[in-house]
């Protein structure tokens, strides 16, 4: 069964060949081969890029949290470099003993409290002994 639109072109010889194909005839493969070739090259290129090129370092970003009580903006560039025998530390690096405790962040500026009457207090206990 043919569509009405196809029937309207049935008079041209080329269309007749398409409608009534001779057994054994094949469409021209050139275009399909070209497309497949280009796609293969693109895929190979992507693979080579992913495997051979080392990943770029991810830049760290400091995110400023939008909520009001967030008070700390800090970077924590804690970089440990395990030196093998014979190596020396990079210029400017602070060298610490391997057994030294891990550095911690300490806040030195504690906000002064507003002068408000607060009922609940935490205090040291005990008494001064004369």
């Amino acid at each position: 069964m043919t569509k009405p639109s196809s029937a309207s072109h049935a008079g041209s010889p080329g269309r007749l060949d398409e409608l009534f194909q001779v057994p054994g005839a094949r469409p021209d493969p050139t275009r399909a081969r070209l497309v497949l070739g280009v796609a293969g090259i693109a895929a190979l290129s992507a693979l080579i890029t992913a495997i051979a090129v080392p990943p770029a370092p991810v830049a760290s970003t400091v995110v400023n949290m939008p909520t009001a009580p967030t008070m700390v903006t800090q970077q924590r560039p804690i970089v440990y470099v395990q030196l093998t025998p014979g190596q020396s530390p990079p210029p400017g690096a602070t060298v610490i003993d391997a057994k030294a405790p891990k550095p911690i962040t300490i806040v030195t500026r504690v906000p002064a409290p507003a002068q408000r009457a607060v009922v609940v207090r935490t205090t040291q206990s005990g008494k001064v002994i004369p």
Partner: peptide, 27 residues
């Protein structure tokens, strides 16, 4: 030996809205 870069000290950059505090009954 280990080399380490100490973390930077934190800085305070806050604005703080005061919450409604409890005014308690105390015994």
């Amino acid at each position: 030996m280990i080399t380490a870069e100490r973390p930077t000290r934190a800085s305070r950059v806050a604005c703080y809205s005061l919450p409604t505090l409890i005014v308690p009954l105390t015994v």
